[in-house]
């Protein structure tokens, strides 16, 4: 099989997972609350006629199975329906607005957690003594259980209020404006050569991405450490040494071996990243999908909540597909 066919094959395997998640979300959000419109309005004192009109407008008057398929097809076409609360507002527009912010946060957080976790694990794995290894393991378990808002708010207090060097929330300072090209401010500002805006965007993203990145870095540190230990104890390394290859060069090769199981882990890590992003965004007033979701929860805007959650389901599926492909590219033993 060629790589293209392998990707197509894996993609086919992902579809049932996405469908299942979609079904699950559909049941949870459409079926469980009874009549979502009433739940959203928070009252039953609404004229029968008005309720029916509203239901028709939102497509909620059709049989459930029809809603199930129509919603799926519309969703795939990019139509996510309309908000229940702000009448006539297409949810897809909102999401298109908010998504780049979440993506930017996710990328920076991933970079942070990878650099912190894999870096620490690599150094500890290479070290000869056991002290650093113990610290790395403890680091792994402690960072994992940090409550994101607790850490985030503490950092805001420290750097925002007490030291006054970094902003406590938002993506940009008032008065700074960046033309949206990719929607990622740190990239757009560079593309436009506006270094002032770039510095401002960086200042805003440091604390949120550090918070999320630190929390996610623990598993990376532990995994890297244990993989390094395993590979360093393997015969491959003895054989390299027997050939007179320098230790630095060997460490580089070992690192590649250590990285492979981590790539597999990236997919799982991504689920944590999405959950963490919702908390991080709320903590830092970061105008992304997470804040949007929490906003909509406050107003019980079921159609919007459903759209975001289903989008997350799709993202999880796509990322797990990408992980598989990355794994196949990095490890020649995977046959495709």
């Amino acid at each position: 099989m060629g790589l293209a066919r392998y990707i197509a094959f894996r993609a086919l395997l992902i579809i049932p997972t996405i469908l299942l998640l979609y079904t699950l979300v559909f049941i949870v959000l459409r079926v469980l609350p009874g009549n979502p419109v009433l739940a959203a309005l928070g009252t039953k004192n609404i004229p029968e006629e008005q309720l029916k009109a509203l239901m028709r407008e939102l497509g909620l008057d059709k049989p459930l199975y029809q809603q199930y398929f129509e919603y799926l097809i519309n969703f795939l076409r990019g139509d996510m329906g309309y908000s229940m609360i702000i009448r006539g507002r297409p949810i897809a527009n909102d999401i298109a607005d908010k998504f780049p912010a979440t993506l930017e946060l996710a990328i920076w957080a991933m970079v942070m957690s990878f650099a912190l976790g894999v870096g620490f694990g690599y150094v500890a794995g290479k070290s000869r003594g056991t002290a650093l290894k113990h610290i790395a393991r403890l680091y792994g378990s402690i960072t994992y259980i940090i409550f994101i808002p607790a850490l985030g708010l503490f950092l805001q207090l420290l750097f925002g209020r007490w030291l006054g060097v970094l902003p406590t929330g938002g993506r940009l300072s008032p008065g700074i404006y960046i033309n949206s090209i990719t929607g990622l401010y740190t990239i757009d500002s560079l593309l436009q050569g506006d270094f002032n805006a770039f510095a401002d965007a960086i200042k805003h993203i440091i604390l949120p991405s550090l918070t999320l990145g630190l929390v996610l870095s623990g598993p990376f540190a532990r995994l890297t450490l244990s993989n390094m230990e395993r590979v360093l104890g393997s015969k491959i390394v003895v054989a390299y040494r027997a050939r007179g290859v320098r230790e630095e060069v060997i460490a580089r090769h070992v690192f590649k071996h250590a990285l492979i199981p981590i790539v597999t882990y990236l997919g799982l890590q991504f689920a944590l990243l999405l959950g963490g992003a919702v908390l991080t965004e709320t903590t830092f007033n970061w105008p992304g999908l997470g804040t949007y979701l929490v906003d909509k929860i406050m107003y019980r805007d079921y159609t919007a909540i459903q759209a975001v959650v289903i989008l997350f389901a799709f993202l999880v599926g796509v990322i797990s597909l990408m992980t598989d492909v990355a794994y196949a590219l990095i490890d020649p033993r995977v046959r495709y």
Partner: peptide, 24 residues
């Protein structure tokens, strides 16, 4: 197994949020 694996892959916090919103 398939159902459980799929749920497992989904961000647990977001699932918990969706569920508690739906349940009240």
């Amino acid at each position: 197994s398939f159902v459980m694996d799929s749920i497992y892959a989904f961000p647990s916090l977001i699932l918990a949020i969706a569920l508690s919103v739906a349940l009240g």
